[in-house]
Design a protein around this nucleic acid. Sequence first.
DNA 1: GTTATTAATTGTTAAAATCGATTGATGTAT
DNA 2: ATACATCAATCGATTTTAACAATTAATAAC
Lengths: 297, 297
Amino acid sequence: MYLPTIKQLQYLLAVVELRHFGQAAERCFVTQSTLSSAIQELETLLGVQLLERTKRKVLPTPMGLELAEQARKILKISFNIIELSNSSKKPLCNEVRLGVIPTIAPFLLPKVLLPLHQAFPELSLLLIEDQSALLMKRLESGEIDCAILALPYPTEKLACQLIGEESFWVAMPEGDPLTKKCKISAAELPMERLLLLEEGHCLSDHAMSACGGSEVKVLYQGSSLYTLIEMVAWGQGITFVPAMALESPLLKHAKIELRPLDEPTPHRQMALVWRATSYQKNNMLVLADKLAELMAI
Amino acid sequence: MYLPTIKQLQYLLAVVELRHFGQAAERCFVTQSTLSSAIQELETLLGVQLLERTKRKVLPTPMGLELAEQARKILKISFNIIELSNSSKKPLCNEVRLGVIPTIAPFLLPKVLLPLHQAFPELSLLLIEDQSALLMKRLESGEIDCAILALPYPTEKLACQLIGEESFWVAMPEGDPLTKKCKISAAELPMERLLLLEEGHCLSDHAMSACGGSEVKVLYQGSSLYTLIEMVAWGQGITFVPAMALESPLLKHAKIELRPLDEPTPHRQMALVWRATSYQKNNMLVLADKLAELMAI
DNA sequence: GTTATTAATTGTTAAAATCGATTGATGTAT
DNA sequence: ATACATCAATCGATTTTAACAATTAATAAC
């Protein structure tokens, strides 16, 4: 099935509007012969006469007028396509679908969203909160464009840019014996009282391995940091919290005490990851840089 | 300003729908390399990435999806264009704007319209009644496609096909002295009593010249054949009527007598005329033939 | 590791688009 | 009437483009 070309339709429209081959050719930046043969070709393709040529004037047939109308529509859409693609050329001016893991999201997002919007007013962030493994799946399927994860995490084939680092603190009930110490060393931690997030949350793994105690048996119980903190406040045990959480109002008002850990301070790294092939790859470095800058404050 | 081509958009749409270059190429009846480079070209033209290619799958970017949507619209219109032009290829299936002079219209049209519609059910006739000179102008400007005129008439540059011929009769008041004769010769006509249509109607000229009396002074008075007949019935004078008018109920019920003219019978020819360049030129011969056939009955 | 799949790439050929110049037909002005 | 100007079609040459077949490089599956 042969279709007319946009060029042919463009030429036709010009002739129908100007009623003059020469002028139409000029408007289209081609010679009259080019335009003339293009329109003949269109007529041949469609098997329909579109213009009546008397030597002195050009008279569009009803079919010519009708096709010019259709041509107008097609050209409008074509220009719209150009517009659309031009409007998306500034950095971070379009929609970015960002996944964030639950142990980062509630502390990071309140801090960065507003300044991010100010830095990139045309950026539209679509946020998804989920655990690392699920975010990876969504990334791969194209459901999201990028994700903020805690490293180390197996990120094969993904591009990755560090955006910050934070140490872990220990949260304990008020009046706990441990509160007497200003800094706590990993060896002093009462592993039997350790409360951790349920499986799937990387925070627990990171904290544990950072303390060297990956073979210790612990109870995975909390489904979110918030409930975990509540449990600590009620005296059920102790847990790790990431440094960023310290500023959170939730922790500030909980009846808990917080202590840093001794050198070498256990910590996790936060990174923005994306498909190496992502159409957003140019934007991603910009975004990661901005995030790093905002987190450093 | 460079625009995408319909082909590029077609290829893009195929890939977006099938998520597979090879299959998309097959659907478009081109090789994979052709399709592949066409889409790259489109991306380069727009300066926007439309597809993410991981070796194992193709993932349209949001922009790719959006453009596919626009492509769908454009292709729909394109196919519609093909449709439109195909639907107008049968003979006399479209709109034909036909002009008819006032001294032919009221007698010819009732006779031919219904059979014409039966012969060409898809033909849509748009009728315009006007004097020859004005019809010529409208023809030239493209306002109408063809006209039925009485010859002789200067029809330079127009294509022309005879569709019939009719002799003139003389109409006179009942009981007029002339009624005693069965046939009237031109010489016997009382020129001083001749009533004719006002200037612009060719009927008068034709009748007069047919009778050889073009230099005779006559009163042009009637603005239509109907009023002219009324004047004759009231005894104001005599006039010519074309043979086709004899069957008209208007003449049958008027208080007038009708007589034919002697050999050589004065007559006029009726013809269909159109611009030689008309896009309808192929239809015109068909139409003229049908009209001639219907008038001969 | 090996094989199969997939899109990009390369080199070649055929097709087309475009141009410049000319032609032929048609009004217009002298 | 005659010369002139205008306009779209046509022709021939050149450049550009489109398309193909074959190959390559990367990846996933076995």
